[in-house]
Design a protein around this nucleic acid. Structure first.
Length: 432
RNA sequence: GCGCCUUUAGCUCAGCUGGUAGAGCAACGGACUUUUAAUCCGCAGGUCCUGGGUUCGAGCCCCAGAGGGCGCACCA
């Protein structure tokens, strides 16, 4: 609440999560004692009132207070009522204070909620079942990332916080659930930036009898629908330019984007020496362990990725960098995979799932070999997952969307910390 | 991990060539019966992020450290 004291009259702005209303408090109405108590109220106190609706002379809809009750006292001084709270560190550490004071902060988290609710409605309407899978993993698979490591005392075993939802959800496709999704936290033990927080929220879905093309269509539908339902518009700001998400999104192969950018046609089947030379010309230090697929990915990241302002599905990732994706039915060196880029940022990733247990084992073994050679992000052989595939997984399309980044886009936030209620920070020093 | 920037009252910020710390709002005391962050008068409020150093004297200069921001790296 915020008070304007006028002697024998008080004007108080009372605010809750939905709106604000003015209170009109007259000394002659509530009596001297009650009035004196009211004048001791402070900015931020929680107040309950009863009274009649009235309009003041200036036309402000108000509650003419007959009874008021202090519900809770704000003992700590509120931030400045005009300038608000702008110190980013305090806004992130003391989100409660930020939310009390900054309407824009409340707006961002309202949008975040509406986006997630919209996703759930869309998926529900298309027959997807929401599930929950383990956060504590015996092996951290489904993505290339360094995991957080923890320990279970009673079982005396090492456990990893999940880096992806993928492998458990596909076990459920094997189990015949056909359309499943999970919206959940994943953890990656890596750097922090305006686009990265160690824990973040992913939505992953798997659709039996689908493929990467159908899943791209679904990704587009999910995000455009969420934009409309959460913000009332399909327009977003990308690097200062207004872009309409409703315009159909381009689909283009990674190797074609590299050719656009460099003027040189590339393909994972080309001689490694040729690709390594091209990469070096673009300032890439080529690691001796990289195959042609990894070099192509690096070329894409350096020459093309940052230019992808408008929503773009980049497709056809090399097999080498896509251990869980099915090989392209028309090109044995590429996969039926895509990543969605908006404003130069990756928002989503998906593919036609690899469902051949023999080929999957071979891919896992390559991952394991890379890990043994010192690649900390490489995967391992997940025997239970292979056993699941041996029971038979139907052709399946899979999709993962970074919910925080979608929220950044739709809420027009500049940092991922602005769309997470409690971003990861170093611990605060409270003295001793 | 590297670079740049930043840290002064509860909040938002000033603080000159090094001379002993300020404003507005909030708080506190008082006046006011139709105000819209913003009436008027008065009063109080400080580990100038921390620790060293230079100096007669440091918020300011130097060194080291801490928190935060941004960029790079990392993040398929």
């Amino acid at each position: 609440m915020l008070m304007r004291d006028q002697g024998k009259l008080l004007f108080i702005t009372l605010q809750d999560r939905t709106d604000a209303i003015q209170l009109f408090v007259s000394k002659s109405v509530i009596g001297d004692n009650a009035f004196d108590t009211m004048t001791t109220l402070d900015l931020g106190d929680w107040l309950g009132v009863t009274g009649n609706i009235m309009t003041t002379r200036k036309g402000e809809l108000s509650v003419k207070v007959s009874v008021a009750q202090l519900l809770a006292k704000a003992v700590r001084p509120m931030p400045d009522k005009w300038h608000g709270l702008t110190d980013t560190e305090v806004r992130y550490r003391q989100r409660y204070a930020d939310l009390i004071v900054n309407e824009d902060s409340r707006r961002v988290f309202a949008i975040r909620h509406e986006i997630i609710a919209s996703f759930r409605r869309t998926l529900h309407s298309q027959g997807f079942i929401e599930v929950e899978t383990p956060v504590l993993h015996v092996e951290a698979g489904g993505a290339h990332a360094r995991p957080f490591v923890t320990h279970h005392n009673a079982l005396d075993m090492t456990l990893y916080l999940r880096i992806a939802l993928e492998l458990h959800l596909k076990r459920l496709i094997v189990g015949g659930m056909e359309r499943v999704y999970e919206i959940g936290r994943v953890f990656r033990n890596e750097g922090i930036s305006t686009r990265h927080n160690p824990e973040f929220t992913m939505m992953e879905l798997y659709q039996a009898f689908g493929d990467y093309s159908e899943v791209m269509t679904l990704a587009e539908h999910l995000i455009v629908t969420a934009a409309t339902e959460a913000t009332g518009s399909t327009w977003v700001d990308i690097d200062g330019v207004e872009v309409d998400l409703a315009k159909p999104w381009r689909r283009v192969r990674m190797i074609d984007l590299i050719e656009e950018a460099t003027g040189v046609a590339v393909h994972p089947s080309h001689p490694r020496e040729k690709l390594a030379t091209l990469a070096a010309q673009h300032g890439i230090t080529v690691d001796s362990r990289w195959g042609t697929g990894k070099i192509i990915e690096e070329l894409f990241e350096v020459t093309a990725e940052a230019k992808l302002r408008e929503p773009t599905f980049v497709t056809g990732h090399p097999v080498e960098i896509s251990p869980l994706a099915r090989v392209d039915r028309n090109d044995p060196f590429l996969t039926e995979r895509f990543e969605l880029f908006v404003g130069g940022r990756e928002l989503a990733n998906g593919y036609s799932e690899l469902n051949d247990p023999i080929e999957q084992r071979a891919r896992f073994q390559e991952e394991q070999a890379a890990k043994d050679a010192g690649n900390l992000e490489a995967g391992t052989v997940d025997e239970d997952y292979l056993r699941a595939l041996e029971y038979g997984m139907p052709p399946t399309g899979g999709l993962g969307i970074g919910m925080d980044r979608v929220t950044m886009l739709l809420a027009r936030a500049q940092s991922v910390r602005d769309v997470m209620l409690f971003p990861t920070l170093r611990p605060e020093d409270f003295g001793s």
